[in-house]
Design a protein around this nucleic acid. Structure first.
Length: 559
RNA sequence: GCGCCCGUAGCUCAGUUGGAUAGAGCGUUUGGCUACGAACCAAAAGGUCGCACGUUCGAGUCGUGCCGGGCGCACCA
């Protein structure tokens, strides 16, 4: 058997059906019978065939008869010990288990094929605002992205991993405001603080929450925010320097946190470069030339360049009424919205922009892999560098709340160049991680009466409410270390720590993946810290035991 | 108002293109470490798959309409 027994049998069945009934099948169902006595695989195919034969010829066929005929043809296939027809027409297959197992074993130990069917995929994940420590919700993003990448690579695909750094956004501006206007610190003082050994990302976490409260006290202070943001966007001034320094240090912290989880990146693409290297100017021309955006000369959006909502029959009638889904790309004051900047970035990702970043090395990560970062400064640029961008599709791991802007980004890119590479690009959406009231209390949060009644409480960076990633990993490692020490006193402390670390990250990664992407995870400490039952450590335990069995057999599968 | 997501055992969740008696973990109860590692295993109890109608030989799964919870629909990102 070549690939998997199920696929082999399916192929054979497809051929039999074509030959015997003249019907060409697409994919069809395989299932596991409810009891092992009924077989290893079951095909409810005969029901479907009966229906199709009746539709085509009007002839009524008994599903059971069809199943019997299929079973006789199928018996000869190697790896099958027998085939039975059960119930009203199920086709149940029994494996020659020894042979199937042996084949599977050699299959598993074979190296991954080089597939490359999809060209170079660009997967963007993590993309945390560089103004405070990463929390558990950010880790859900990173783990989902990293695992997707591992699966694609295991399938032989080529993947380039991006982490988008929004270093010129409002969130960075807020922390800059905190340092300058609340703490009255100079760049040197901030530098001293960041390099002083404490956790700078934790410091900013608290400061960011303070800034939120500070604005609340006096709304007039919001003027300071927009002025600060403007200076950061423009660059080349003292405020921008502070912003640059803070966001870079926080990115370091994020990379350290992600390294603990064995997550790495190829390229950090920074928003400041998208601005300063005029990516937008080029994208703007393309958007205009393709007719993707139009300048409104009247109405509410007068003076803006907008991407018109897709006209469907349903909304055509509503077009004139109050709700209008047109997306503004350029504001009437001439500045670009985030959607516009993201369209420019995505055109670059697919090699459709006609411009490139400059690049420099940032660091080697925990695996010794070189991480690159974009730069606008030619003097800092390192050449040669890997060929970034020019992907054949992009996959963006971004929370589901951004489905609407993400859809607009894809649509904008699609209008400029309508090809299948864009069509198969996608927003990999996931839901957020919230806190159970119990978890919030454990974090020392005082709950209002209405909050205590709720099933879940949203994390809020602005309020400083959330489970920091490093704290959680620390707790997991401590718990795991206790367990390891109680079982393996013969190991050195370093060995114990290494094992505890591996167990801890398995627990966390598995915990974040075991839920459907689109379901909200209400974070519970007990559940997340558990090593028993349906957990990562249980899978590790199973793998270790299986390996020990192979070792005792005198051979082991390559992992 | 429009759109999206969620609703399945006491709790947290699986359930692939519609298929046989709706599953797992946690928790509860019972039993098991001189056998392949007890971070485990064996077993018991536990269900109006939110509600209703429809399509189908067959619906947790598809359609329509409701109910409950959450989130989008900015000249924010």
């Amino acid at each position: 058997m070549s690939s998997s027994p199920a696929i082999e049998i399916k192929d054979r069945l497809r051929a039999i059906v074509q030959e015997s009934f003249g019907i060409s099948l697409e994919d069809f169902a395989v299932e596991t019978p409810p009891k092992t006595e009924l077989g290893d695989l079951a095909f409810p195919l005969a029901f479907d065939l009966a229906k199709r034969i009746k539709a085509a010829t009007g002839e009524k066929k008994n599903p059971r008869e069809i199943a019997v005929r299929l079973s006789e043809e199928l018996k000869a296939l190697p790896g099958i010990s027998r085939v039975e027809v059960a119930g009203a027409g199920y086709l149940n297959v029994f494996f020659d288990r020894a042979q199937v197992f042996t084949n599977l074993l050699s299959e598993v130990s074979r190296p991954a094929v080089i597939n490359q069917q999809l060209g170079k995929l660009i997967v963007e994940h993590t993309s945390i605002n560089p103004n405070k420590a990463a929390h558990i919700g950010h880790v859900r993003n990173a783990v989902l992205g990293d695992t997707t990448i591992r699966i694609l690579r295991a399938m032989g695909e080529t993947v380039e991993v991006h982490n988008y750094i929004d270093n010129t956004g409002v969130q960075v501006a807020d922390v800059v405001v905190g340092f300058i206007h609340i703490e009255k610190k100079s760049l040197d003082e901030i530098r001293k603080l960041a390099e002083g050994g404490g956790k700078f990302d934790y410091y900013c976490w608290d400061l960011y929450a303070q800034v939120g409260a500070w604005y609340e006290e006096d709304k007039a202070r919001l003027e300071i925010r927009s002025r600060t943001l403007h200076e950061i966007e423009e660059g080349g001034n003292a405020t921008a320097q502070i912003g640059e320094y803070i966001s870079s240090r926080i990115v370091d912290c994020h990379l350290d946190t992600m390294s603990r989880l064995d997550i790495g990146y190829d390229l950090l693409a920074r928003e400041s470069e998208i601005l300063h290297l005029h990516f937008w100017t080029h994208a703007f021309e393309k958007l205009k030339a393709s007719g993707a955006i139009v300048l409104e000369t009247e109405g509410r959006n007068k003076g803006c360049w907008v991407m018109r909502a897709e006209e469907t029959e349903e909304n055509a009638a509503q077009k004139e009424t109050e709700h209008d889904a047109d997306k503004i790309i350029v504001r009437s004051n001439g500045t670009v919205t985030y959607t516009g900047k993201d369209i420019a970035y995505h055109l670059w990702k697919l090699g459709k922009l006609g411009l490139d970043f400059h690049y420099r090395n940032l660091r080697r990560d925990h695996r010794g892999h070189e991480v690159w970062v974009t730069t606008a400064d030619v003097k800092l640029a390192i050449d040669p560098h890997p060929d970034f961008g020019n992907g054949t599709a992009f996959l963006n791991v971004i929370d589901v709340g951004q489905s609407y802007p993400q859809a607009n980004v894809k649509r904008g890119v699609m209008i400029i160049d309508h090809d299948e590479r864009v069509a198969r690009s996608a927003h990999l959406a996931y839901e957020k991680v919230t806190l159970t009231p119990a978890a919030a209390v454990e974090l020392g949060v005082e709950l209002s009466e209405s909050d205590a009644q709720r099933q879940q409480i949203g994390m809020s960076g602005r309020k400083g409410l959330g489970v920091k990633a490093d704290d959680l990993i620390d707790r997991l490692e401590e718990n795991a270390l206790k367990e390891v020490q109680s079982r393996h006193q013969e190991l050195t402390v370093d060995e114990q720590r290494l094992i505890a670390h591996q167990i801890a990250i398995a627990a966390l990664r598995y915990f974040l993946l075991k839920f459907t992407r689109t379901s909200i995870i209400a974070f519970d400490f007990n559940e997340a810290l558990s090593f028993e039952g349906e957990t990562g450590p249980y899978i590790q335990y199973s793998a270790v035991r299986a390996n020990n069995i192979f070792r005792k057999l005198g051979r082991r599968p390559k992992s």
